[in-house]
Design a binder for these strands. Sequence first.
DNA 1: TACGTTGTGTACTGATCGGTAAAACTGTTT
DNA 2: AAACAGTTTTACCGATCAGTACACAACGTA
Lengths: 199, 199
Amino acid sequence: MARVIKERADTIAQLAATFRTYGFNGASLSVISESTSLGKGSLYNFFPGGKDEMAEAVLDEVSDWFRLHINEPLAAAGNPAARIEAMFTSCEEYFSSHQLVCLFGAFALSHEQKRFEAQIFRYFDDWAAALTTALQDGGWPRQEANALALDIIAGIQGALVIARARHNPCTLNALLMRLRLTIAFESRAPFPTESRTLS
Amino acid sequence: MARVIKERADTIAQLAATFRTYGFNGASLSVISESTSLGKGSLYNFFPGGKDEMAEAVLDEVSDWFRLHINEPLAAAGNPAARIEAMFTSCEEYFSSHQLVCLFGAFALSHEQKRFEAQIFRYFDDWAAALTTALQDGGWPRQEANALALDIIAGIQGALVIARARHNPCTLNALLMRLRLTIAFESRAPFPTESRTLS
DNA sequence: TACGTTGTGTACTGATCGGTAAAACTGTTT
DNA sequence: AAACAGTTTTACCGATCAGTACACAACGTA
């Protein structure tokens, strides 16, 4: 019999895909076992903590990806507008090729928010901090940049909800395009008047 | 023994709360039975189709509420800006008092998107249509109003994601406040230039 | 009072759940 | 080849799952 020996890291991408498709509760061990081509024994060998540890590992992997491809580029040196544009592009590519699901967003809306609260909080917090940095580098005052960063991240998450609801990947591109233009438009007035600040 | 005879309609609000808290998969029949104080016999008497029918009834109830309190006021006569402001206010109240969860949004991000696709699509489509009407009444050209309506609805859904992620209801208010100002700001220029339209 | 309808409580089913235990296999080291 | 750690298969556990069956209780009507 042809046995294939795997490592823990090899399974995480498939685990992530399974959680994205079925959710945490819907991804039963038998479903996971089939999608990873791994028996329960192997799964518990890699993840002694069971499903919780699998989900944690997946969230960590996603966090790492975002830190590397989104947050660090956002906070790095270079043209601020280009950095932000790169964020939008990367997000489009990432979510389009990952079932239009942000696991952190999906978990935040579900009962798993309780179990993974700290990781979820940190994911959005890190993202917001990096985007705030880029916006500040682009000339926005600290407080306004902070609020605008949250607006944009919320806009991206909302775009994913609507794109999924419509079962139409183009919706994501369209909504993100308009999100981009919102910044470009607002940034034409480098010093926002108080009428646009949060009371 | 004090038995309380209920009707099907009496249970739907509690069912909705249970689905919001635990999600579709997480809301097992025993959880539902406890939260509704109803035995399985009663539940299957009211909902012969089981959990699927319960969820469908809940989604229908939410749809009806939004049609009555959001969509119809949006599309009715009166000051367009006031109608839109009423939408924001109603949404704030509704979601703040409903665990910061929009069931349609949560289902859209989960595996239940498949099962309830039609209802989910219709919910957002009706909402977008009503909001588009209000925006057109406020002077926005049809196509721009249509796109802006989707922006706003996505913004609201995203705000719910972030508010849940932060476990902080005030975040919803803050994000919705800035969403409002975005419209107010953009509408100062009643005839948007092509630089703000979607390519 | 008697009767049908509707709602309720309890016990049960087979299937599946998450998780465990241990034998059998694999590749590496010695 | 012998020993070993890491991986995989298989069988199994008690608990819970969604759903069913059915006797029984409350109600409206007559």
